[in-house]
């Protein structure tokens, strides 16, 4: 058990070191993240221009929301992207992984953890510390709020990871993944509340969003962070995230099991 754990941990360590070697990649990602933050900051500023509170959300809360959302999206962006998973399936690189004595989805998770923590320590954390000092957004005021936020963000990360890998594995059955990929990106960008929080959705759309797993990725942790989701309301939100994580992870395991068989068949 300890030994297995140590093996996966080794992947994290190596991927951390690899990220350190490819720093240009990291810098261009930071640049992209900051520009995206700038654009969305301007958009929200303009939307609130001349208005006080909309749907009981003040501009300051919204600014805090978009700041933490972009920070989280920055961290997520250091993981293996969907197109990379698709490329591995298409080129057959993934077949080699099956020969090796580890569980592929878990290995991926630990590898991403390495590149993610490198990116977090060297880029996102210092950058957003400066931005946060400058803009003075709402931040969690108590240790418990911080704890709940981190827990929720971690659950969100795992949900996104499970979904992204599952969608990537669909490549085994589809030669061309165009449509599937677009559904994934659209859902991730709209229903997760990545740039437009669910508060501002029309009621019918908000109820659809609340029935989907995507809101657990950014919306719930962001809302906890800015203090709009607090007290008793946090518990059901977290529970919802846990349930979706179990479902998404289960789906990932199921698709992975089917996909591994598919490789065996193709390999003859």
């Amino acid at each position: 058990m300890i030994k297995t754990y140590r093996m996966y941990w080794e992947f994290t360590r190596k991927s951390f070191q690899r990220s350190a070697a490819y720093r240009v990649d990291s810098w261009s990602r930071v640049l992209g993240n900051v520009m995206s933050l700038g654009i969305w900051g301007c958009i929200w500023f303009a939307l609130y221009y001349g208005k006080g509170s909309v749907e009981n959300i003040s501009f300051h809360s919204m600014l805090s929301y978009i700041l933490i959302s972009m920070a989280l999206q920055g961290i997520h962006s250091a993981g293996t992207p969907l197109w990379e998973i698709q490329r591995r399936v298409r080129t057959g690189d993934i077949a080699i992984e099956l020969l090796r004595p580890y569980d592929y989805p878990l290995r991926m998770l630990f590898t991403d953890l390495g590149s993610m923590s490198f990116y977090f320590i060297t880029a996102i954390f210092p950058l957003y510390t400066v931005i946060f000092i400058f803009f003075q957004p709402n931040i969690p005021l108590s240790a418990s709020q911080w704890g709940l936020f981190i827990l929720s963000a971690a659950l969100g990360y795992l949900i996104r990871y499970s979904l992204e890998l599952t969608f990537g594995l669909f490549t085994f059955w589809l030669v061309e993944t165009g449509g599937v990929e677009d559904i994934f990106y659209f859902s991730i960008s709209l229903f997760s509340g990545s740039v437009v929080p669910l508060w501002f959705f029309p009621d019918w759309l908000a109820s659809i969003a609340s029935l989907l797993p995507f809101q657990g990725i950014y919306f719930v942790p962001n809302a906890i962070f800015v203090g709009e989701l607090s007290g008793q309301a946090i518990l059901p939100a977290l529970l919802n995230q846990v349930i979706w994580l179990v479902i998404c992870y289960g789906l990932l395991r199921f698709v992975w099991a089917k996909a591994s068989q598919k490789i065996v068949v193709q390999g003859g």
Partner: peptide, 18 residues
């Protein structure tokens, strides 16, 4: 076509309350 429609839908949702 869907990707761009997605952006347009996001704009619509954004402006729904505002």
């Amino acid at each position: 076509a869907m990707t761009y429609a997605g952006t347009a839908i996001t704009m619509w949702v954004m402006l729904y309350s505002f």
